[in-house]
Amino acid sequence: MKAKHLLIALAVLFALVVIVLPVAVIFQRAFAEGFAVWLAAVSEPETRSAIVLTVVTALIVVPVNIVFGLCAAWAIARFKFPGRRALLVVIELPFAISPIVAGLCFLLVYGAYGPVGGALQPYGIQLMFNLAGIVLVSLFVTCPFVVREVLPVLSVSGEDEERAALTLGASGWQMFRLVTVPNITWALVYGAILATARAIGEFGAVSVVSGAIRGQTMTLPLQIELLYNDYNTTGAFAAATVLALLALVTLVLRGLIALTHPVRGAAQ
C-alpha cells in the first residue's frame, strides 16, 4: 500500500511540475495585468491578422488532408497493389522528420533557387515566403493524421456492407457516401481534429518558409515569437492563451470522442 501511494504521489507531482505548470503560467502571465489588457493585446492588428492567417491556413490544409487521407486509406484498405507498403511508409515519414529539416526540404525544391520554384518564377508564381509556402509545409506535417485514424477502422469493418450495397445497385459514389462514410465518421473527425491542432500550432517548419513579414505571413505561433523577442511579453502570452485554449479544447474533444466512440478495433 505504501509503495502505491508513493508512486501515485510521484506521478502526480511529475505531471504537475512538468506538464501542468507550464500551461498554468501562460494564463497567469497573460492575465496578470487584467482582462482588459489581455483583450487589447489579442486584438492588436498584427495579432489579429496572425489569427486570421492561421485560421485560413487550417481551413485550406485540413480539407485537403481529409480528401487525401480518405483516398489513401481507401486505396490501402481495399486494394492490393505493388508498392502498398511503401506508400504507407512514405505517408508516415513526416512524423520522423524534424520541423526545421522539413522546412528546409521545401525551400530547396519550391524556393526560388530550387528546381520547381525556379521553373515557376518566370511565370510570376512564388511558392515560398507566403501563404502557399505555409500551406505546403503544413500539409507535410499533417500528412499522416487522417490516414492513421481512418485506415485501422476501414480495414476491420464495412467490406461486406459495401459489397451488399454494390449488389443492391449502388454506384461507387453512393456506396461510399451512404455506407463507407457513416462507418468511419468518428475516426475521420478524430483525425481531422488532430490535423487541425497540428496545422494551427506548427512552428519550426512554418518559420523556415514563412518569410516572417509582419502582419502578412506571420501565423499565430510565429507571432508569439515575434512579440516575445520584441519584449512584448504580455502580448506574447495573450496570443499564447489562444493557442493553449485550442490545445485544451482539442484534448477535451479527443477525450469525448474516445469515450463515446471507441475507435480502434471497432466492428460491432
Binding site: V12, L21, P22, V23, G201, E202, A240, L243
Partner: peptide, 24 residues
C-alpha cells in the same frame, strides 16, 4: 484527468511551450 494531461505536450504548439518554460 492525469491520463488526458499526458497528451497536453502533443497538443500545445511548441512556441507556446517555449515561452511558458522560460517564464517558469
Amino acid at each position: 484527468a492525469l491520463d488526458a494531461l499526458v497528451d497536453l505536450p502533443f497538443a500545445l504548439p511548441t512556441s507556446v511551450a517555449g515561452i511558458a518554460l522560460v517564464a517558469l
